Computed example of a mutant assay.
Amino acid sequence: MRLGLDVLFLRHRHRLRGKRIGIVVHPASLDRQRRHAIERFASASDFRLTAIFGPQHGLRGETQDNMIEWEGWRDPKLGIPVFSLYGATRMPTPEMLADVDVLVFDLQDVGTRVYTYIWTMALCMKAVAREGREMIVVDRPNPIGGVHVEGPVLQQGFESFVGMFPIPLRHGMTVGELARLFNEAFGIGCRLQVIPMEGWRRDLWYDQTNLLWVPPSPNMPTLETATVYPGMVLVEGTLLSEGRGTTRPFELIGAPFIDPDRVAAELRAEKLPGVFFRPCYFQPTFHKYAGQLCGGVQVHVLDRARFKPVLTAVAFLKAIHRLYPEQFQWRPPPYEYVFDRLPFDILAGTDRLRQQIVEDRPLREIEESWRADLERFRPLRRAYLMYA
């Protein structure tokens, strides 16, 4: 298969010729020959690379957590600016785009609404529209496939940098498809060209593409992490550990007060599809409960086609809230620059899910409560899908 980056240079190079190019990239911006996008653009003679932009976690992928900002610099080898889109601004300023004719976006997403790269893309599109420039999005696989959608759809009033438009937690789209959706259905209206991949199918998982997995962020080390992330990211909205500071973030979840066997038994009784909960202990080296022994579970996905990450995470949170009502706590603000709402509600895109967990509503009822919004989203989504 060919990535959008490969197809751009192979079939659409004329779109770049003679122009000043800015690129939005990170460590995972490799072509299928494992060459980095910066190398590809900087070595060209028929156009000029004039600016590099990096998202949350930095151009080099070194910053760990939300609201850890980084500053840009001037690249000593290329002699061009590196601009931070996770610092003083998250949208390119007029000054940043002053020497750019075409902005090329090439970030690897993980298929979850709250992963911020798609919102960096949306803000870049808005900036390009404002400045009268052109935007090219070179497409990449959704690593967890492009078939399934799950979870609550973002509700009005809960917009943030982890959700600007009404899409579900697991959206089942590629960045290129999302760019078209954002531009047309949600009214950004920039001059947009999406360069599709060749040879990718919706049913493919990342390990079926023969592409190298490069962690797109520090706590996304493996495809297994990305598989559980659409649900387990909700644990960030509590004072439970989501496993940051371990070698298995978002797969190891727990807290010092949790009895692993008791929680695992509760979860197994739910008979959730495609998953096994192994009782375990872990000790984070940083982040929540650094240096403390935590009890909890490891989420082992046995059948990823049947696994429901969001429902699984809700089952875990319900179990902890039910078993440990005195110790369970929601994380206080701020979260991703929102200071007036609970982080859990920002992540969920609604306050209804938190209320359902507090009330210990049945899992089936919670899942059913997502259905109407998901059914409205599906035909909208379908109009922008580019792959079979």
Score class of each variant (00 low, 15 high):
14 H>M: 09
14 H>T: 08
14 H>G: 08
21 I>L: 07
22 G>H: 10
24 V>P: 10
28 A>N: 08
30 L>T: 01
32 R>G: 06
33 Q>P: 00
38 I>D: 06
42 A>W: 01
44 A>Y: 02
47 F>V: 08
53 F>Q: 09
63 T>W: 11
66 N>G: 05
67 M>L: 13
72 G>E: 07
77 K>P: 00
78 L>Q: 08
78 L>P: 03
83 F>P: 00
85 L>G: 11
85 L>R: 08
86 Y>D: 13
90 R>G: 01
90 R>C: 06
93 T>P: 03
97 L>M: 13
97 L>K: 12
98 A>M: 07
101 D>R: 13
102 V>S: 08
102 V>K: 13
103 L>D: 13
104 V>F: 09
105 F>E: 09
108 Q>E: 07
108 Q>R: 05
108 Q>M: 11
111 G>E: 08
113 R>F: 12
115 Y>P: 12
116 T>V: 13
117 Y>C: 06
121 M>I: 07
122 A>I: 09
132 G>D: 05
134 E>G: 07
137 V>N: 03
138 V>L: 06
138 V>N: 08
138 V>K: 00
139 D>V: 02
139 D>C: 01
140 R>A: 02
142 N>W: 03
143 P>K: 11
146 G>Q: 04
148 H>R: 15
148 H>T: 12
154 L>T: 09
155 Q>E: 15
162 V>F: 10
163 G>E: 06
164 M>E: 13
165 F>Y: 15
168 P>N: 12
168 P>S: 08
168 P>E: 00
172 G>C: 02
173 M>Y: 08
173 M>P: 04
175 V>T: 12
179 A>C: 12
180 R>Q: 14
180 R>I: 00
181 L>Y: 13
185 A>W: 03
186 F>T: 09
192 L>A: 03
192 L>D: 02
202 R>G: 01
208 Q>L: 00
208 Q>G: 03
208 Q>V: 01
213 W>I: 01
213 W>M: 05
217 S>Q: 04
217 S>A: 15
221 P>K: 03
223 L>N: 08
224 E>T: 08
225 T>W: 03
226 A>T: 03
227 T>L: 15
231 G>C: 03
233 V>F: 04
233 V>A: 11
241 S>F: 05
245 G>W: 04
247 T>V: 14
248 R>A: 14
256 P>M: 06
257 F>V: 01
257 F>L: 04
257 F>P: 06
259 D>E: 15
261 D>E: 15
269 A>K: 12
272 L>K: 08
272 L>T: 05
282 F>T: 11
283 Q>H: 05
285 T>D: 11
288 K>L: 14
292 Q>H: 13
293 L>H: 05
293 L>K: 14
296 G>D: 10
297 V>A: 11
301 V>W: 10
302 L>H: 06
303 D>W: 07
306 R>A: 15
310 V>N: 09
319 A>S: 14
321 H>V: 02
324 Y>T: 00
327 Q>Y: 06
327 Q>W: 02
329 Q>M: 12
332 P>D: 14
336 E>I: 10
340 D>S: 10
343 P>I: 02
344 F>I: 02
349 G>R: 04
351 D>G: 14
354 R>P: 02
362 P>Y: 04
366 I>L: 04
367 E>A: 14
367 E>M: 05
368 E>R: 14
369 S>Y: 01
369 S>P: 03
376 R>W: 06
377 F>M: 08
377 F>C: 12
381 R>E: 00
381 R>C: 04
382 R>H: 14
383 A>D: 13
383 A>I: 00
385 L>Y: 05
